[in-house]
Design a protein around this nucleic acid. Structure first.
Lengths: 155, 155
DNA sequence: GTAAGTGCAAATGATTTGCAGATGT
DNA sequence: ACATCTGCAAATCATTTGCACTTAC
């Protein structure tokens, strides 16, 4: 399992490196570390989460380089971010792309199936000419367990 | 028209005052100013927008009082806020409640009909037990004119 | 009179930026 | 070599908070 995931990481690194080169950009220590940190976590990660993960991988890497790397990888189309109502932006590799919803009470992020917003997207497009990007902001509401446990959601 | 809107404001103020009193809270200069500022603008306003509007109405009112008032009015159920992907939170009186979408390119906020997310809301509830609050975060995407003018949306 | 609310200044959290020096290709 | 990146420190933007003082009721 460990060997396999290392192999996967190596493939990812090679792939990303050539993508960056194609854009006249470079593979550097901060970028490598951010990629490792991101692929080590399955889901959505905040920038600060990446910062602290990277801190253990490569302590010399500065917080601002992490932010810049996140931007660079996003520009390269490898990364996406979701704006959460509460708190910081969450990042994830594009492979895991899917819509999200965040519980306003416990702040848990719920993953939604890719097609859940298809009808809405079509509708918004046809009726308003608005081309939705359902991945860019998390929906908001109350998750199953919070909905059961309480009447007055927070925030 | 001016007389009418003053009358409307007076009614709103009376209404809000009694609502606050019912909660053991008070009607104060900052709160009055914030209400006036909010009702003067039809749509969604950022906190900083309110701060600057209030600054002309009542210069002594401090920025932090505006934020606290915005919270208080929200807690009292008179105000709602929408988290926008780009930039600050937008506030609006509950009367104007409806879903929003923000263009990632020009950052315009588009108002959506109240029922547009009904199907999605039902679906999320039935399939995931997630109770959506479609008003709490703005959807994201590209507005009609930006979609026409370009292929590569910003942000 | 007294709790609720305020102004102020300082703190916070997330993110950005200018710049001089380091590094990938 | 030289442009791309980085580390650092400082700046910024939106918002919050502790505290002594006002004010609405």
């Amino acid at each position: 399992m460990t060997v396999t995931s290392e192999a996967v990481n190596r493939d990812i690194l090679e792939h990303v490196t050539s993508l960056l080169h194609a854009r006249g950009e470079r593979m550097t220590v901060p970028r490598r570390s951010v990629l490792l940190a991101l692929s080590a976590r399955t889901g959505h990660v905040s920038a600060e989460q990446v910062v602290s993960d990277v801190a253990t991988l490569a302590p010399a890497v500065h917080r601002s380089s992490v932010y810049r790397t996140l931007d660079a990888l996003t520009a390269a189309g490898l990364l996406q971010h979701v704006h959460l109502g509460h708190g910081a932006t969450a990042y994830h590799l594009v492979e895991h792309a899917h819509p999200h919803a965040q519980c306003t009470s416990c702040h848990t992020i719920v993953d939604l199936p890719t097609d859940l917003l298809d009808a809405l997207t079509t509708c918004a497009q046809e009726q308003f000419g608005f081309v939705l990007d359902p991945l860019h902001v998390a929906l908001s509401g109350t998750c199953r367990s919070c909905a059961h446990n309480q009447q007055k959601p927070g925030h």
